[in-house]
């Protein structure tokens, strides 16, 4: 039961949240302009990083905001959070 520091509500139990997985996956701006392989990369391929990575969380049973958590996938240690659209934050 992780303790997720919601940037809007403060630390809350993981059971209030839904994890959206890897952050920073950008939808091609012009889908028709990309190849099937590039589209597949967007759709399915993941970095699945072992170590510190950025991931999306949704405070489903709280403020219902999506935000980004920087978390180590080995130790579960949370390094920090970002609000959506904050400086430099890719979704």
């Amino acid at each position: 039961m992780l303790l997720i520091p919601c940037p809007w509500c403060g630390p809350r139990a993981e059971s209030e949240f839904a994890c959206g997985g890897e952050a920073g996956i950008v939808r091609p701006g012009a889908p028709d302009a990309v190849s099937d392989a590039e589209w597949a990369d967007y759709l399915f391929m993941r970095t699945n990083h072992r170590g510190l990575h950025r991931e999306q969380w949704w405070h489903a049973h709280g403020c219902r905001r999506w935000f980004i958590v920087r978390r180590d996938t080995v130790t579960c240690r949370i390094d920090g959070v970002e609000k959506m659209g904050s400086a430099g934050a890719a979704p």
Binding site: G20, R27, Q56, W58, R64, R65, W66, M84, G85, P91
Partner: peptide, 9 residues
């Protein structure tokens, strides 16, 4: 909500 907040803010 996800599309709105993460993709089309």
């Amino acid at each position: 909500e996800r599309w709105l907040q993460t993709e089309w803010p």
